[in-house]
């Protein structure tokens, strides 16, 4: 996708966000009472309108500029404008799953499961030594440093609690 097309999609999505945001603000937040009280609504409303104006400006710039021949890539840019949807989606699921497991099974059980899964699925590592060494080693190291040395609470499970 060229930078221009990407900016067009981005501008449209932001405009939609601005409209929905502004409508929700007007609908759900009461205005101020006047006489110096501008109320809780004013700032979210102004920000929504600003976002709308800026998105429109972005869209106008895209429409007015000449079509590009090649995708906009910069060798110095750390992301090069390519979105890797699959790893992004997987990370979202894995971290959310990690959060759920932390609540139910606690840190000591949740961490090796998640690390094992991430290394097996995302990194396609098949070496049992590396998989188990990393998942158990990392869990143990974090538990010792954070829970025992620094006294930071690392979640005990509500279903299974092994401390």
């Amino acid at each position: 996708m060229t930078d221009q097309k990407r900016s067009f999609v981005l501008g449209s999505l932001l405009l939609l966000l601005a409209v929905v945001w502004t409508w929700l603000v007007i609908d759900t937040i009461p205005p101020g009472f006047g006489e110096g009280d501008i109320g809780a609504r004013a700032f979210p409303l102004i920000f929504g309108i600003f976002l709308g104006v800026l998105s429109l400006l972005l869209l106008i710039n895209v429409v007015r500029s000449k079509p590009e021949c090649e995708p906009d890539t910069d060798p110095n840019d750390s992301f090069q404008g390519v979105i890797h949807w699959l790893p992004a989606g997987l990370i979202l699921i894995e971290i959310s799953g990690y959060g759920y497991l932390l609540n139910t099974c606690g840190f000591v059980i949740a961490t090796p499961i998640v690390v094992l899964f991430v290394m097996f699925v995302n990194l396609r590592i098949r070496s049992a030594k590396l998989l188990f060494g990393m998942s158990i080693g990392l869990t143990l190291a974090c538990w010792l440093i954070f829970e025992k040395a620094l006294g930071i609470y690392l979640a005990n499970g509500s279903w299974i609690n092994i401390g």
Binding site: L92, G99, A155
Partner: peptide, 27 residues
């Protein structure tokens, strides 16, 4: 990155001991 992932979850959770913060961080 695997190490950073675990540290991120520890960091987000330890702020308020809330799994909601982990979901927010991911999103």
């Amino acid at each position: 990155a695997v190490v950073v992932l675990v540290l991120c979850v520890i960091g987000a959770y330890s702020i308020r001991n809330s799994a909601f913060d982990i979901y927010s961080m991911a999103a």
